[in-house]
Structure formats: C-alpha cells, structure tokens
Design a protein around this nucleic acid. Structure first.
Lengths: 153, 153
DNA sequence: TTGTTTTACTTGACTTTTGCAAGTTTTTAT
DNA sequence: ATAAAAACTTGCAAAAGTCAAGTAAAACAA
C-alpha cells in the first residue's frame, strides 16, 4: 500500500481515463442525434433516468453541480421538452424531475452511440480482459457509492 | 457480445464513473493547495508532465480541446509561472511546453490529494479486487491509446 | 526560385456556462 | 408565532468555449 510509484501512476491513469471518457461522451452527444445536447446535459439526463422522480437537489448533488447552474440547465432542458418538472405534492418547495418520451429517446441515442464506441474499444481486449474490465467498473462504482467520495465539498 | 442489457448497463456505469472521477479531480484541485487551478488547467498540467516537451497542438489534441482555448489557457498558466514555452529549434512555428518547478509541485500536490481519495476508495476493496481494478485501468488506457477513440471529431 | 498551400499558433469578438450573493416561498423547529 | 432552514430562482460578473480572421514559418509544386 505504501508503494508510491504504483499509486502515482494509477492516479494519473485514472485521471486521464476519466478525461478521455468525458471527451468520448461529449462526442457521443455531438454526433448521436439532431438534438444538441451538451456533456453536462447528457449527465443530467442520465442521472434523472437512473433515479425515480428525483428532486432537483438530489440530481444536482449527485452530479456535484451547483444548484444555480443546475436550475438553469433544467430550464433549458424543459424548454426543449426533454425534461418535465412537477411540484412534489407533499412539499411545494420541491420540483420532481422526469424525462419526457423525447428525453428518453435522446438518452437512448446517446447510449447507442456510446455502445458502438465501447464495442470498438473492447474489441482491443480479449474475452478475459473484457470481463476483468467490466467487473472492475462495477466494483469501482459500488465503492464510490459507499464512500460517497466524489461529491464532498 | 449481443447482450444488450449488459452493454447498456456498462455504458451507463462508465459514464457515471467518468463524471465522478471528474468531480473528484476537481475537488482535488480546489482543496490541494493555495494555487487556484481549474479542472481543465489540471488536465493540461498533467498532460504536459506525461509527455516530454510536447508542442501545443499535441497537448491540445490529446485533451480534445480547441487550440484557441488552449492557447489562452497556456498564456494564463505561463503568467502564473506554472508552465514555460520555448520555440522548437527545428521549427520556429512550434512552441514546446514544459512545467516549471512550481508547476511540477502543483502537479504533485494534486496527485497527493488524489492519492488520499484513491486510498480511501480502494480501502473498500479486497486486495484481489484492487489488483483487478488496477489491471483494468491499465488495459482500458492502453486500448484507448490504440483506438485513439476519444479524440475523433 | 517563386508562388501556393499547409501548419502552428494568436487575437478579436462574440456566446455559453458557471458561481456567488441575494431573494422568494415553503417547511421545520422552538 | 417567530426564527431558522431548505429548495429553488434571478442578477451579475468571471471563466471558458467558439468562430472568423490574421501572422509567421515550413512544405510543396511549377
């Protein structure tokens, strides 16, 4: 665990990977469909889809976004009819978010494009390596959820 | 390979992970040191460090950044004395980039902070899982370099 | 050699995105 | 009932990104 070289290196690689997947994602958004969806907007769409009727706070926090920026993004997405807002019946302060059918469709298209890229990327790997990678991604994802590491401010 | 559910899911997880590592990285920049370094600036610094005397084009391309934005960022970083530029002796059009000692230090500090987070994150995993993850990260990184997948425009 | 094209960057003039401060409305706590 | 907190929204200023145009050096072609 005290192996400095090892950690330095891994940290670097992870950072670069994260950046590159970001670019990849952005490309998917650009090229997937007529709809112009920015990278952050795609994240918002994905996150709304992953949750069930989340509040704005909930989504904004999970994305590590400032609520004010988020508020404006939602306004945009709403005007493009990709997302709808409705008041929480139990608490009038809260807006619950949902994807419109178009929103779902956009999400699907981004996903498909991503899938193409991933297939290309994974074609570089052997069956065994592929499994390793998929397992790892899940492990990391779960670990991150547990530690809540990403969103501390 | 035709397992739709599998791929959909993996794509989602990777996207979310990439986002979260981005946030993580941004947090590292915010909290690591007195120096105020934005996320993009940290990526630039890291990328310059990873290469040996890269040109501006080289770094900008690898980060998927517009050269004009990049040019201005370098100007800023130069004025903060984190990066230096010098003319390529063989081709006067080209500016070669290098981190200053301060730049290296900033990079180190961001790295250390990242290391702390990673250790926390990895403490959720068993020794075996940790190895799996580290191996995967390298595999992905290499595969991405091969396909050049990230930066196609 | 000379003229044309390409490459590597810079600058100007925008538009978009973001973040802080301050405000509104509703809920919770005292 | 009053104060404090939570969930947003809006104003404003700074940061980042884009497009068009420009400079200077290198590569290429006649």
């Amino acid at each position: 665990m005290g192996d400095t070289f090892f950690w330095d290196d891994t940290g670097d690689i992870i950072r670069v990977l994260a950046r590159q997947f970001g670019i990849l994602n952005a490309n998917c958004c650009d090229t997937c469909c007529g709809e112009e969806v920015s990278l952050v907007q795609s994240h918002i769409i994905i996150e709304i889809d992953r949750r069930t009727n989340p509040s704005m706070q909930e989504v904004a926090r999970s994305l590590g976004m400032d609520i004010t920026t988020f508020s404006r993004q939602i306004k945009t997405l709403e005007s493009r009819r990709l997302v709808t807002r409705c008041q929480d019946p139990g608490d009038k302060r809260i807006n619950l978010l949902k994807l419109t059918p178009e929103g779902v469709q956009v999400k699907q298209q981004i996903n498909n494009r991503m899938k193409e890229y991933l297939e290309l990327l994974f074609s570089e790997l052997t069956e065994f390596e592929r499994d390793t990678v998929v397992r790892s991604v899940r492990l990391l994802s779960r670990a991150m959820e547990k530690t809540g590491i990403c969103c501390l401010r």
